[in-house]
Design a protein around this nucleic acid. Sequence first.
DNA 1: CATGAATGAGGCTTCATTCAT
DNA 2: GATGAATGAAGCCTCATTCAT
Lengths: 202, 202, 202, 202
Amino acid sequence: MSALPRPTTARGEATRGKLLAAAEAEFGENGFASTAVSDITRRAGVAQGTFYLYFPTKADALRQLVQDMGRQLRHALTEGTAGARDRLEVERLGLEAFIDFALEHQNLYKVVMESQFVDDSIYREYYQTLADSYTVNLQRAQARGELRGGDASAQAWSLMGVAHFLGLRYAIWERARPPRHVLDATFDLLAHGIAPGGERGA
Amino acid sequence: MSALPRPTTARGEATRGKLLAAAEAEFGENGFASTAVSDITRRAGVAQGTFYLYFPTKADALRQLVQDMGRQLRHALTEGTAGARDRLEVERLGLEAFIDFALEHQNLYKVVMESQFVDDSIYREYYQTLADSYTVNLQRAQARGELRGGDASAQAWSLMGVAHFLGLRYAIWERARPPRHVLDATFDLLAHGIAPGGERGA
Amino acid sequence: MSALPRPTTARGEATRGKLLAAAEAEFGENGFASTAVSDITRRAGVAQGTFYLYFPTKADALRQLVQDMGRQLRHALTEGTAGARDRLEVERLGLEAFIDFALEHQNLYKVVMESQFVDDSIYREYYQTLADSYTVNLQRAQARGELRGGDASAQAWSLMGVAHFLGLRYAIWERARPPRHVLDATFDLLAHGIAPGGERGA
Amino acid sequence: MSALPRPTTARGEATRGKLLAAAEAEFGENGFASTAVSDITRRAGVAQGTFYLYFPTKADALRQLVQDMGRQLRHALTEGTAGARDRLEVERLGLEAFIDFALEHQNLYKVVMESQFVDDSIYREYYQTLADSYTVNLQRAQARGELRGGDASAQAWSLMGVAHFLGLRYAIWERARPPRHVLDATFDLLAHGIAPGGERGA
DNA sequence: CATGAATGAGGCTTCATTCAT
DNA sequence: GATGAATGAAGCCTCATTCAT
């Protein structure tokens, strides 16, 4: 019924942090639908009402969380691919960085995926943002001749798909880094495709 | 407290069908968590109690639904790739068949994805089953020399990822078949990779 | 999210009746704002959820109640004034019938008055309906020469005001029928006004 | 747990004033039950805790408000009827002054009426005080022969009822002064009653 | 005097499931 | 086989009030 005055003091900022961390853990472990606000506040060690000092609704906490995770992931990918000499190496390093990130943030998958059932726009924005920056990078690499041509956007989405399922199968389900030969095979596919004949890497 | 009587008369079978169809529609449109059993029975045109004559719980209806959709999808893929001359063509046709299926079964994505929040095993089984049969097919193709070597399982998951995100972006979000050049670019990537140098198709 | 299927069986009708009676009592005794739905269901002897089988919201129960009371009041007034020979006698009898009704339905006042804080339209409709039928009756009496002329609607509202405050002071606050001389004085005012000079009745 | 310090500095008095004005506006616009203390403090431009420096409870602010409005109304009526030559003219002018007051203090009605659901004594005191002084005035007028006889208290309550409903219908619902013919008809009733035969004014 | 973060009880509403008919 | 009324637990959110600064 009225805009909440989002606490701004240092103490407030700290509480907000605790709440967001607790939300990530709970949503990740039990899912958004199965998590009660009271679960979050209990974990954060604050009263239930405090939650609503920082988030207008439970769903909004999810939104903030997903946006946060998107930022963190993009940051991790940038970091993880910093030393690469060419785009192919970026992809290789990126794949590993992604897996590492997913391993450390088991909750990412669940939190992001469930966001679509809460508010589709959260989910779409997450992937669209990711895809957009990915696409730009691929276009630049194409221009530099480091990648074969083709619709960069389509490539971006495909590569995201590859990474996503690799992460799902290993980081999430196995809770372990994929074995080297799987990583190699995945990268090989992504670099040279499945058509026979081309020389192989690795 | 006792095993379900599972009606078996023709009338019963019809009711069960109506219920499952209604569940698919509701789960797909509003999500599992936001769908009440009463939404399903209302749509199916039966009383609320009737639901429990056919499904022990709401979650079980979801399980049956996902299994059903998995079967249908695999069937559609088999059909859609029947006339292919080699594995590459299978992949090409499979990609299109998948998109077509997703277009006709908009709910597939939501229903399957949300299943992991209800019972992870439903979700895992869905993808594992898909991946397993995919893997076998790829291995055979490799044996026939129609595909370059490498861990077939890793390939299968990668290819599933590519198809998944292509479907998400177009069939689900745009509710339209992807433009030809996107399909071409996607298939090109999957066939020849992103490394520069290889001759290109299309 | 969906229209509720309002139970229609005899059993259902009975439950609805218990609920409405309990709501009248609770709203009347403690006020709408201070009455919890659980207070109502407890008094009615049903589970809390049952309430929502019959009323979409707590506020809607109030609406139904007010409408119900309006109907009852109008009925009581019609009954109570049936034997009158002219309009003046109708007014006299009506005043008494109104007091009697208020005495038997202590809750009427509180329930109706508080309705405006829940939804102004409930309140307005109540009085407008009352005023409208009152006005028509006054017009007819004027036409029959049983009443002096003048804006019948203004008269109706004024007379309602007189009755309202008489009821408030006695039926509600004193919980007793006003003393005869008060009734007489009130009726005298209403019949002959406060201007001096006219001969007086009683 | 201890008596309120009731600030007494000029600054404190100013804050108290802002708070009371904000409370009147909020209670009037949204009702007591729907107004949060935070709504009041936000409107007053002070922190939430400040409210409790001036009022022990939210209900107490309402009490003070109602008492305040009673005083103001009585003052306005005195002012508005100052120049009248006889009691009938006082009534006429008083009716108009009341309407004007209600028009300027839309909130009066809601605030006063809702007070009964918070604490019946607030409400009773308001009307009793009004009726008592009204009664005294009528008795004096009767003694002067400016009014016909009869229980002055009953007359007072009746006249209050007439004014109340006139104000409700026009000042509050229509937010406009009643048309002249309505005022005339109302005054005519109050002066000469509804019985036929008497000479008519206007 | 004033601030504003924190509290925690309480209320409305939803919904999966049961059961008597 | 089917019905639909009833249940009651559970969860989101609001808000009067407190208190440390």
